[in-house]
Computed example of a mutant assay.
Amino acid sequence: MNLCIMENCIKPVKAKKYCAMHHQRWRRHGDPNTIKVRKSDPPAVCQWVRCEKPTLCKGYCAKHYYIQRMMKS
């Protein structure tokens, strides 16, 4: 079994002599040493009137999303 060519990495090779993690970094950034944290959007607030809970799906919190689904059925 071949190991990743990166220093101190003992994971098995996936492709191009890199393990899965280093290969993915190489594909995304062109360098297997580059580490970039993906930024997520700030949590949105429910669209329902006077509701300040964070959204779950389609702009509504869990409670109001359920109500919306039932109203459309």
Rank of each mutant, 00 (worst) to 15 (best):
Y18F: 11
I5K: 15
S40V: 06
H29C: 07
H64R: 09
R50K: 12
K58G: 08
D31L: 07
N2K: 02
E7T: 05
Y18E: 01
D41S: 11
K53R: 10
R28F: 10
V45G: 06
W26P: 02
I67W: 00
C9H: 01
C9F: 03
C9V: 02
I5M: 14
P42I: 01
E7Q: 07
V13H: 01
R28G: 03
M21H: 05
A62D: 08
R28C: 05
I10V: 10
D31G: 07
V49D: 13
P12Q: 15
S40D: 07
I5Q: 15
Q47L: 12
K63G: 07
E7I: 04
K17D: 07
K14N: 11
P54L: 06
K58D: 13
K14L: 14
Y66T: 15
V49Y: 00
Q68V: 05
C9P: 01
K53G: 00
K36N: 06
D41N: 12
G30E: 02
H29T: 09
A44I: 04
H23V: 09
A20E: 11
G30D: 01
T34F: 04
M6F: 05
I10F: 09
C51N: 06
C19S: 02
M71D: 14
P42T: 01
Y65I: 03
L56P: 01
